[in-house]
Design a protein around this nucleic acid. Structure first.
Lengths: 204, 204
DNA sequence: GAAGTTTTGTATCGAGTGGTAGATAAGTCT
DNA sequence: AGACTTATCTACCACTCGATACAAAACTTC
């Protein structure tokens, strides 16, 4: 075992609590007082473990990504491009209205715009959102190589469309929309997905 | 003319500057120091004119709504439901990447999640976003009565879909996506709009 | 047990927060 | 002109912000 006094709190548990605070109040809106209270530790412990408020957010984002990663693995394992899209939107509708978490998406509510001294937070969140879009794009490109998606389809456009709808669903959920509302949006989006020229559908 | 010393600044000009600060930094991220500097006035003048930081935001939101109202009038004047949707998405793509403003949408970046003491800001923004959705829904219901939209179409679902995509485009634009990227998303969304069962299209 | 190492709690730092008191300036009214 | 009304400025309020110094506590190693 390592030397010195052992840590009296569980890092992952504390991160979960911090994640919830950032999720519900955004980076600027989450004060150290709120964070330390939720995490059940004092400020010096927080700084010793995570370095800074920004470091804490990044650690929380890593944990968030880790959670979502399992979902995405299932999504990307869909047999066809259409099934991937279906799984993705449905997974978003569920997760953004999961009563175990604040409504919406941490990567959206966490901070689209921040004050002085937090200028890089929006970039941090954006790059994490971009990761999901890249995963989808890669999967659709593969589908195209497999002949599952028409050669004239546009994997990048499809991925960006889905990613955009997911962000929009985050905004919607954050303002109290219920699960059925998100599912309805997912349904319409999926129709669009299936039939648009970018997916190789017939233009009107 | 009214009695007393006349105001030395133009209220609307000052509001435009305040709007930009809220837009770029969000409600919590916009400090009074930033606001007063941008508006070119001192704190007491600000409070005399707008009552509080929240009052200033609401006034800025009113002005924002006023601006968008002209665009929406053009959007809703589209001859068909499809043309309304097309105009709406294209108007969003343009306005969210207008170099004269911060990228994205004030109603999205302004504050999806806020800190203690600003709890009602997200509601305020949400209710303004809901207004646009309601306008679209009403217009689509009218289209349905006109026989322009199929009887089995779902005006509420279509309006919510478009509104969600618009929010998503706001998120996308806020992270630096350019106009063409938003136009591409609009194009895919429009295909979905035209062909989905909610619009009276043929289900797969 | 003594030395060494790390974490914890208390107490606090300087800077910045939203907001205001009070005096002064700049107008209109009679 | 003088009374009245409103806006502006300087200075400042109590408070909260993110972050830290320091000493006591809790462990491992020798």
């Amino acid at each position: 075992m390592v030397m010195g006094r052992p840590r009296s709190f569980d890092t992952d548990k504390a991160l979960d609590e911090a994640m919830e605070v950032f999720w519900r109040h955004g980076y600027d809106g989450a004060s150290l007082a709120m964070l330390t209270k939720a995490m059940g530790i004092k400020a010096p412990s927080l700084y010793a473990a995570f370095g800074s408020k920004e470091g804490l957010l990044k650690a929380a984002l890593d944990r968030y990504a880790q959670r979502r990663c399992e979902h995405m693995r299932h999504v990307l394992a869909g047999a066809t491009a259409r099934e991937v899209a279906e799984r993705f939107l449905s997974s978003i509708a569920e997760s953004h209205t999961d009563p175990a978490n604040p409504p919406g998406c941490l990567l959206v509510q966490g901070g689209l715009a921040c004050g002085e001294g937090s200028e890089n937070i929006p970039f941090e969140l954006a790059s994490r959102r971009a990761q999901t879009e890249a995963d989808l794009r890669e999967r659709f490109a593969q589908a195209q190589r497999d002949g599952d998606l028409a050669p004239e389809a546009d994997p990048a456009a499809l991925a960006r469309f889905l990613s955009t709808v997911a962000s929009g669903m985050g905004v919607l959920a954050s303002s109290g929309a219920d699960r059925d509302a998100l599912r309805a949006v997912a349904r319409v989006s999926l129709s669009a997905f299936t039939r648009c020229p970018e997916a190789g559908g017939v233009p009107s």
